[in-house]
């Protein structure tokens, strides 16, 4: 049963990581537009050049390679 000494902290730690990840998704507004986010992944607008972000969190329009 000595293995419990490692297993319990490890499993709790992993679960805790999951919880922290959940907090992060909540805080960064990832539940605001579930519909849009699931579809945005299908577009290739920012595949070559990611949308630029500045400090305030607002983003600039990048030069889009596939736009005429």
């Amino acid at each position: 049963m000595d293995v419990l000494r490692f297993l319990i902290p490890v499993s709790l730690g992993l679960g805790g990581l999951g919880l922290l990840a959940f907090f992060w998704t909540l805080r960064s507004n990832q539940y605001e537009d579930p519909d849009g986010d699931s579809r945005r992944i299908l577009t290739d607008d920012y595949d070559d050049a990611p949308k630029l972000q500045d400090k305030a969190g607002t983003s600039e329009t990048p030069t889009k390679p596939n736009q005429q």
Binding site: E32, D33, P34, D35, G36, R39, T58, S59, E60, T61
Partner: peptide
């Protein structure tokens, strides 16, 4: 226009 963002859910 500086920035435009669509929210499809809303």
């Amino acid at each position: 226009v500086r920035e435009a963002r669509v929210n499809l859910t809303q």
